[in-house]
Design a protein around this nucleic acid. Structure first.
Lengths: 159, 159
DNA sequence: TTTGAAAAATGCGAAGC
DNA sequence: GCTTCGCATTTTTCAAA
């Protein structure tokens, strides 16, 4: 697992603009051979630097209710609760946090009923949970995946 | 803008497994022609159902500090604040919510100093903001983009 | 590691069903 | 709207610098 160099960052930048850019395209823009781009991308993907994915617009597939849920958990049971939450397909994101809530999660539902069911039936099953704070998304302003990449950073950091 | 049918959902499902699957691959797996897959994908992308992107692992590019920040805003100034936040490359996600915070945002920084600067200098400039609640991510358990797609939903919904 | 060239596979546009 | 059919482009492999 080595550091990323300038070329790697240029590749990332072009791929952030267009996730479907071809190796050849990128190679032409960066004035290197297609094989170089392919090997750089292959290495980065293998090392977990990035992955090729599709981002589905939840609203377009009927997931109209989006929520961020903050939890406090009983001492020593956070991992257990997080592991349980991990398994729900409705749950897109779970992490432990400092601050008011031990755990926060982001989840998508197709209706308010499903959200209520998730909170009152599924979460209620877990007695490691102390409190639940549900925030329902009213209007989205930004949901970007092309965040700023610090080009001068030390990138020998692992996941 | 028409509904998605079973074939569209199957395509989405395969692309969620592998964002780099070729038209031909998908066509073979679903027993239709490559041209059909190509036109379905083209239509869905045009309609904003999904997009091809790369997902960069923030930790691998030096963005080691991840935060969720909850804000309360002065009455009537939420849009203005959200619009301002939108412009920061550090800010990945912003949305208005019901619940304790009017706005919540997710942001990535390369150091605690940068987070502190963002909160104390940048956010402080906005007098539309009343309160700020910063939660720092300690451990991530899930960050998925292959969320469950309800196959039986009514999908004439727009963004 | 990067490059170049040949072979295989994929993507693309157009025509016909 | 789906398929087939050429042709352009891309991807893949591999040998060599």
């Amino acid at each position: 697992m080595s550091k990323l160099d300038t070329l790697d960052f240029s590749v990332l930048s072009l791929l952030q603009e267009n996730g479907k850019a071809s190796y050849s395209d990128i190679a032409r823009k960066l004035s290197v051979s297609e094989g170089t781009i392919r090997s750089r991308i292959g290495k980065m993907v293998k090392d977990g630097v990035f992955e090729f994915i599709i981002h589905v617009n939840p609203n377009k597939v009927g997931l109209c209710v989006q929520a961020i849920i903050g939890l406090t958990t009983k001492l020593g049971r956070q991992e257990e609760v997080a592991g349980w939450l991990h398994q729900f397909p409705e749950v897109r994101f779970v992490a432990a946090f400092s601050g008011k809530h031990d755990l926060m999660l982001q989840a998508y539902f197709s209706s308010n009923e499903e959200l209520v069911h998730f909170v009152n039936k599924e979460l209620a099953k877990l007695d490691g949970i102390d409190t639940v704070d549900v925030s329902i998304e009213l209007k989205q302003y930004k949901d970007s995946f092309s965040y700023a990449i610090p080009k001068n950073s030390n990138n020998s950091i692992s996941s």
